[in-house]
Amino acid sequence: MEKTVNQKAWFLVLPVLLLVAFSAVIPLMTVVNYSVQDTFGNNQFYWAGLEWFKELLESERLHNALGRQIAFSMIILAIEVPLGIFVALNMPKKGFWASVCLVLMALPLLIPWNVVGTIWQIFGRVDIGLLGYTLDALGIAYNYTQDSFAAWATVVVMDVWHWTSLVALLAYAGLQSIPDAYYQAAKIDQASRWKVFRYIELPKMQGVLLIAILLRFMDSFMIYTEPFVVTGGGPGNATTFLSIDLVKMALGQFDLGPAAAFSLMYFLVILLISWVFYTVMTNLDKRDGV
């Protein structure tokens, strides 16, 4: 029987379309308009063409910020994903302790970004912070306000502390959905622990892990509040990531034209990565569905 195609349901999404137009599309169009002009305030604009884009593409400042941003995202993914999986594998499957673990894991996720930043800013201080004080007492030179390595280590460890549990919880949910029959079959075949992980658990977790990687990547790629509170982008520019640099440019220097061009390029990179992830995920679903 031939199904009749009725596209009228699309009218039902009109309210959402209006809302998105108001909150995203119109501001984005304005940003595009800004990116090709220069302004000295008073809502007076002068045509600049593609000048800002050209300037930014050749700007060392942007290259460095992008490099730091990519390095940061890669480092935290390389730590958080394996660590999250490891934690999930070792969490109790059921009972009282499973609930305790879940609650404990969820706690860091509930803390607002700026509070996380403040916690670590104080925690790392040599005079009053436990971490800073202890490291100092052990004779390890640690000062995140002056040493770029210490600043990086603090920001990375802070992100790992804040977000590993998200990966762990997602991986845990993936693990819980594996029926017992798979493990029984593996036992009959005398599969080693590694093989159970490699051929049963990992493939079954693939979907949620991709979501976890996407979420963590996007979130770390636009990270602003935590490093801003802890290091303020310093020492020097050592922890100035893309969004911190963008805000400096847009609100600190009030260079609306270059900042608009900057945010458009930032947006394009994010759009590309999101599309790649989305495509991979939907194709995985389709493959699994067959």
Partner: peptide
């Protein structure tokens, strides 16, 4: 609309994209 700082090239750019979207919608139907 003055606050959006429109220029002719950007207006043409968005009109082209809007036309493409309409065209593809019509094609899809």
């Amino acid at each position: 609309m003055a606050w959006m700082a429109w220029t002719l090239p950007t207006a043409i750019f968005f009109c082209t994209i809007a036309c493409l979207l309409v065209l593809f919608t019509v094609l899809a139907i």
